[in-house]
Simulated assay, not measured.
Amino acid sequence: MTVSARRARPSSGNDRPPGVIPSHDVRARRPDPRAAKTIENIVNAAQNVMMNHGTPRVTAQEVCDSAGVSRGTLYRYFPSMEAVLEAVVLRLRTETDEELNHAMKGCETPTERFAAFLKYSVSNNETRRGSQFLHVEPAFVIQYFQSNFEHFIQRVLTALDPVFDAWEADIGTPVDRAAIAEMMVRLALSETVVPPAEGKPLALRLQSTIDVILDALRS
Score class of each variant (00 low, 15 high):
Gly172Asp: 09
Leu204Gly: 07
Ile153Ala: 12
Leu189Ile: 10
Leu157Gln: 01
Pro110Met: 05
Pro162Ile: 04
Leu157Pro: 02
Pro195Phe: 07
Gln143Lys: 14
Leu118His: 10
Val156Asp: 03
Ile153Pro: 10
Ala169Gln: 09
Phe117Cys: 09
Val175Phe: 04
Ala103Arg: 08
Thr192Gln: 02
Thr109Glu: 08
Val163Asp: 00
Arg205Gln: 14
Ala181Lys: 05
Ala103Gln: 07
Asn101Pro: 09
Ser190Met: 09
Phe114Ala: 01
Glu191Cys: 08
Ser190Ile: 01
Gly199Glu: 02
Asn101Ile: 02
Arg205Asn: 13
Arg205Lys: 15
Asp170Trp: 01
Pro162Asp: 06
Arg155Thr: 04
Arg128Gly: 11
Ala139Lys: 11
Asp165Phe: 08
Ala169Met: 02
Ala115Tyr: 07
Gln132Glu: 13
Arg129Thr: 06
Ala203Glu: 06
Ser131Leu: 05
Glu99His: 05
Gly172Ala: 07
Thr111Cys: 13
Gln207Trp: 11
Thr173Tyr: 06
Gln207Asn: 11
Gln146Phe: 09
Pro196Asn: 07
Arg155Tyr: 05
Arg129Val: 04
Ile153Cys: 12
His102Asp: 06
Leu202Ile: 08
Arg128Met: 15
Glu137Val: 14
Leu160Met: 00
Val141Ser: 10
Phe133Arg: 14
Leu206His: 12
Asp97Ile: 09
Ile180Phe: 04
Glu137Phe: 11
Leu206Ile: 15
Leu206Met: 14
Pro162Met: 04
Trp167Thr: 06
Ser147Tyr: 04
Glu99Phe: 01
Ser121Phe: 03
Leu157Glu: 06
Arg205Trp: 06
Ser121Asp: 09
Thr109Pro: 08
Ala115Leu: 13
Phe145Arg: 11
Glu112Ile: 11
Phe114Thr: 01
Met184Gly: 03
Leu206Ser: 11
Lys119Gly: 12
Glu191Phe: 04
Phe145Met: 13
Asn125Ala: 15
Val193Gly: 06
Ser147Phe: 00
Ala203Gly: 06
Phe149Ala: 03
Val141Arg: 10
Glu98Tyr: 02
Ala188Cys: 11
Phe140Ser: 00
Leu157Trp: 08
Tyr144Glu: 02
Val163Gly: 01
Ser190Thr: 00
Arg205His: 12
Glu98Gln: 04
Val163Glu: 07
Ala159Thr: 13
Pro196His: 07
Ser147Ala: 12
Cys107Met: 14
Lys105Thr: 14
Ser190Trp: 05
Ala178Ser: 09
Phe149Cys: 10
Ala116Tyr: 07
Thr127Ser: 00
Phe114Leu: 11
Glu98Pro: 05
Leu160Phe: 08
Arg177Asn: 08
Phe152Pro: 00
Asn125Trp: 12
Gln143Phe: 13
Val163Thr: 10
Ser123Pro: 12
Val136Tyr: 05
Glu137Asp: 13
Ser131Arg: 10
Gly130His: 10
Cys107Lys: 14
Pro201Tyr: 00
Arg113Thr: 03
Thr173Ala: 10
His135Tyr: 13
Glu98Ile: 00
Gly199Met: 03
